[in-house]
Design a protein around this nucleic acid. Sequence first.
DNA 1: TTGTATGCGTTATCAT
DNA 2: ATGATAACGCATACAA
Lengths: 334, 334
Amino acid sequence: MAGVSRATVSYVINGLADGQIPISEETRRAVQAAVKELGYEPDARAQALRSGNTKTIGLIIPDIHNPHYWDFVDGTEQEARASGYHLLLSATTFNSKYAEDIFDGLAHRRIDGLILCGSFNIQSLKAQNALTQILNRQLPLVEMRDNYNLESDSVVSDYGAPTREVMTYLLSLQHRRIGVIYGVDEPSLAEDRQTAYENSLQRAGLPLDPSLFVQCGSSIEDGYQAALKLLGSRQRPTAVIAINDLLAMGVLRAAGDLGLKIPEDLSLVGYDNILMSNYLVPRLTTVSKDAVLAGREACKLVLERIQNPALPHRRREIPARLVIRESTGPNLGS
Amino acid sequence: MAGVSRATVSYVINGLADGQIPISEETRRAVQAAVKELGYEPDARAQALRSGNTKTIGLIIPDIHNPHYWDFVDGTEQEARASGYHLLLSATTFNSKYAEDIFDGLAHRRIDGLILCGSFNIQSLKAQNALTQILNRQLPLVEMRDNYNLESDSVVSDYGAPTREVMTYLLSLQHRRIGVIYGVDEPSLAEDRQTAYENSLQRAGLPLDPSLFVQCGSSIEDGYQAALKLLGSRQRPTAVIAINDLLAMGVLRAAGDLGLKIPEDLSLVGYDNILMSNYLVPRLTTVSKDAVLAGREACKLVLERIQNPALPHRRREIPARLVIRESTGPNLGS
DNA sequence: TTGTATGCGTTATCAT
DNA sequence: ATGATAACGCATACAA
């Protein structure tokens, strides 16, 4: 329609005209007019086939119902969009038979990079195979934990120090029986918190009561049920640490049902500092981590590696710190 | 490697062997062995270029921080995955300059279908243009509201009836001053609720006090601030309807800050029945809608239309109904 | 039962 | 300053 060849159109559209390849002003205008007239848009499929990259980043999150991950997705999307990339979102639940499908699907689609957020079932042999295959293909990969293997970049947070801080704080409030709602799908992912908890107790000369350490799933209902069990026992704890804020909301609810007032009868600490934790009644004391920032950093890392695959393996640390609000107070017990 | 031609490999992989094109057993086995050996996976980019479809569905949600939409995403993803489709997720905020970028990006990518969930700035001329262009391209489109135009399928909920039910319920509890936190980015999208509210008041012979109807943004902080204003006034309402549960959480918090007990001093109703609304203290009375189901239905509709573009335009209705829990009670006021 | 040839829409290389 | 051509990896019509 512009009366020029396909190549010329390509030059004009991709702005190679600037310096690299000289295009006459009238040709450019003719092409641009035709583009507008026809509503022409280059076909990303053909571009992908030709150039080899899809301008797409895969993002896998473990739990679609936990606000913490939305913050993460938010940050990732901001950064991806800013660079003209799109996000291919997948959600997997622990033990999900889909884990394998997801990896296969992403490999098949030739995404340019992959961000693996949070736990997924690496115990599954199939998932493990899928992952190693992805690594073999040199797919830029960012993991939100210490590198499962050294090939990948990672964005992590040290929860050991803030957990010790939580324990020191709770102990200073005279809490002696401190429960833990350990609702992580992949237990090893929160080991730093578990050991910090145990070490703090030992250092304080307190016994390690296994009945205070409750493992459960990651839904709010799981947190609720776990708390019901933990708080319904004869020697109930006077403080509870929930491994994330969503579970803490379940604990809050369970405490209400048992007639326990927070923080008078029970102190409660969460992790993540999800947006709504500051609007709960009472406002939740929590270990805060900027998930949006984490998402941005993760995305930056993939994008950088996409641009330069030879980069040394990197590790970004997102700080986590205790934020004291209203859900914790002194032990007023007998 | 299998000693056969590319075509034969294609036949074997795509299972055309079954009936359509006969393949000898030994050839098939040889191909399959080679596939496994090489870790061969067909290139989705080339397939997309050749076949014309990307097996990708675009999904636009208005607010990444509202749990309601995640339920929706959940349902959509389940259905998409079941059919071998992936989700290209975009989040847009009202008034976002990105609205246009998003549409352009999706058009450029030649997604197979688009699900438009919730409000987006159709007032923006650019967004409108982008949308009509998409329609011109016959892209299968599902809108989560009554059809912006007749070309698209839609999944909707009638909020008029349940809102009247809410009003009847609150009036029966002797509430006479009923506030509304109207935090919708695109006001027209909740018009049915507004008129139901106004009609119910009129039918009860009650005045329409504009100061009871507060417009605000859609974040929890917006709900909090709006409630602070609404409940801080001299003639504060004894009941508040929040246009969604997230905003209701903000109201809950504001009430706490003002020393108002729920439901003794204030009744509160939300919409959506997000998962956590049943774990709040008090549990939230809300107009429930199954967002996961809505997501599935929306995805089914696109998938069906992708398969058969000539389908008549369809409209699915997802029921919404009042669920009475603990946040509402009789007006005990003077 | 299998192989050959063609084209999907781009962009890069080489000519002109 | 621009046009012709090849190639990306696949699926299919057709030939053998």
